[in-house]
Design a protein around this nucleic acid. Structure first.
Length: 560
RNA sequence: UGGGGCAUGGUGCAACGGCAGCACACCAGACUUUGGAUCUGAGGAUCUUGGUUCGAAUCCAGGUGCCCCAGCCA
């Protein structure tokens, strides 16, 4: 792999794996990433992916991609394809090990029969409600189902008929016979199979009984020779059951290790909630750049490597965590700073007329493409009498420490000239500044003050006649509070969706070198931020996404 | 009130009986033709109470707090 490793630092999982190898519990390392194809991957999955593939890679092992597709009513091929694309984009490769739990349905069925024969599983005719009732509570033991002691023959017969479709959904389930008084509720005769007369995205109508997660996951791991099954802390309570099935079946013993899932400030990483944002049109889709999904981050211009670096820095532990989104943004900036070409783009234009500049004259000026990377070369900028600058870069009454343009003051136009504001036109009704009149100093071509005079401010600009129009989509955090997962009792995370998360700017003016860019291309709009060309861009209709803004020291000063 | 898990600066992660360190964030300064980047510096943490020890974030005991578990979801 050519990418830098994610999860490079030592952590408790690496230590555990090292120990397993040292004591010869295993002589190699095999992991797996097991998504359920019922939604799109998000930044939380990225952590799991980096850990699963990263651990394998670190120990010279392999990582399988296995779709955990045991619930046909929720799963779709569309998601399978999207998930594969996202993992590949992150930079990981599962070789030919693209596997599906549904490929194991026949084997799993055989395992179930085996357990029935051992007297370790039975068909229960209790209704879902009754099973729930019989399960007991967190503090009281459950009680045994009246069907718990059916004969092996009867169980075998009914289970076979379940498979053949003789019963409607909910009529019965196959349960493991463990211990209804177990302190761990997962051990109170968990359901192994349920009846679902649903078409499966891969097996079609071949099956009408489907294994539950607990009866599918561990055995799938085992069949694949997975040595280390790394998963969410949520499955800690399931480990005894995971081990129980493997033990009773006498199959290859894998080791499950759990780690804390990722949480990020100002965002939500629950599939259910993300689905809701999409279905209620609070965002424009799964790949809306405000979403924490990988496809959204890709569309927004977050480099995959930046995400991997972020995951690496987040670390791996068992503590519940809430990572500051600024760490992700730092990584995005850090990477883009080295790679993105600089361009001049005016997001909120106001016209500047250089009154002493000859009408009709056009000069060509040289601009550096990337000060961080001399090999990126230079390009040419057109300068003329009428320009656009950023509305923010002019103040009729400049506040203290404001270095930009204001009446009587000088400012440098990047790569251009030093200009002085002589006058401005104000709409008397609205109070809006409509035009600024300046003079330029012809001795300062390129922006150099040969007389040594100090000009504090440098602003960006475009030539009015040469500039190209564009739409720019400015994104901000989707939620107004740090942790939308924890809200006041009578509130929902939906109450905290930010009304300002998307601002569409039209009539922006960008330098002409951007006229023919392609979706996905990334740039730094100087002094503004990193932007990328959106998928919606068509010939003659430029659309940019704000990837991440530049740090804005002035905004900080001004807000004080 | 059952079971499982976790407690280190604002947020994360390290330190594995021997000077509590790193990153992000925050603050101050230098530099600057991006108020970007870069550079320098500062502040700020071991949940609590006991015990073991020459020495405890680390080991032991008791408290406290937080998270997860009662799907025919994964």
């Amino acid at each position: 792999m050519t990418n830098e490793p994610a999860v490079s630092a030592s952590n408790f999982i690496r230590e555990a794996v090292e120990e397993d190898l040292r004591i010869s519990r295993f002589d190699h390392v095999q992991t797996r990433f097991p998504p359920e194809p019922n939604g799109y991957l998000h930044i939380g999955h990225a952590k799991a992916i980096c850990i699963d593939f990263g651990i394998a890679e670190a120990f010279g092992g392999k990582c399988n991609l296995r779709f955990d597709d045991t619930n046909p009513v929720k799963e779709e091929t569309e998601y399978v394809d999207a998930i594969k694309e996202d993992i590949r984009w992150l930079g990981y490769d599962w070789g030919d090990q693209e596997l599906f739990a549904s490929d194991y349905f026949e084997t799993l069925y055989g395992y179930a029969v085996e357990l029935i024969k051992k007297g370790k599983a039975y068909v229960d005719d209790l209704s879902a409600d009754q099973i729930k009732e019989y399960r007991g509570t967190l503090t009281e033991p459950g009680k045994e189902s009246p069907y718990r002691n059916r004969s092996v023959e009867e169980n075998l017969d009914i289970f076979d008929r379940m498979r053949r479709g003789e019963f409607p959904e909910g009529a019965c389930v196959l349960r493991a016979k463990i211990d209804m008084a177990a302190s761990n509720i997962n051990m109170r005769d968990p359901t192994m199979y349920r009846i679902l007369h649903a078409s499966h995205h891969r097996t079609g109508s071949k099956w009408c009984i489907y294994p539950m997660y607990d009866f599918a996951h561990g055995q799938s791991d085992s069949m694949e020779g997975v040595t280390h099954s790394l998963c969410d802390l949520a499955y800690e309570d399931h480990r005894p059951l995971y081990n129980w099935f493997i033990e009773e079946l006498g199959i290859f013993k894998t080791r499950q290790i759990e780690f804390a899932r990722l949480n990020v400030t100002y965002t939500i990483l629950s599939k259910r909630f993300l689905k809701q944002l999409v279905s209620e049109n609070l965002v424009r889709g799964w790949d809306d750049p405000r979403m924490p999904t990988l496809c959204a981050m890709r569309r927004r211009g977050y480099p995959a490597q930046a995400i991997r670096n972020f995951i690496d820095q987040v670390g791996v532990a068992k503590n519940e965590n809430l990572i500051d989104i600024s760490l992700l943004e730092f990584n995005v900036r850090n990477l883009l700073n080295k790679t993105a070409s600089r361009v001049l783009a005016v997001l909120n234009p106001i016209k500047v007329v250089i009154t002493n500049y000859p009408k009709g004259q056009v000069e060509e000026l040289e601009a550096v493409n990337n000060p961080e990377d001399p090999s990126a070369g230079t390009r040419t900028l057109q300068f003329s009498r009428e320009l656009y600058i950023e509305r923010d870069d002019f103040r009729e009454v400049p506040p203290p420490k404001y270095f930009r343009l204001s009446p009587g003051r000088e400012v440098r136009l990047r790569y251009g000239y030093i200009i002085k504001c002589e006058d401005f036109v104000k709409n008397q009704k609205t109070g809006e500044i409509e035009e600024i009149h300046c003079t330029y100093d012809p001795q300062t071509r390129g922006g150099y003050a040969l007389d040594g005079r100090k000009v504090q401010g440098t602003i960006h600009w475009v030539s009015a006649v040469h500039a190209v129009e564009a739409e720019v989509r400015m994104y901000d955090r989707l939620f107004t509070i740090q942790n939308p997962n924890k809200v006041e009792e009578d509130k929902s995370y939906l109450d905290y969706v930010s009304p300002d998360s998307l601002k569409v700017l039209t009539g922006c003016r960008v330098e002409p070198s951007l006229a023919n860019v392609k979706p996905g291309q990334q740039f730094q709009f100087e002094r503004k931020g990193f932007f990328c060309v959106d998928l919606d861009t068509k010939p003659g209709q430029l659309i940019f996404n704000l990837t991440v803004p530049l740090r804005d020291t002035w905004a900080k000063i001004e807000s004080k």
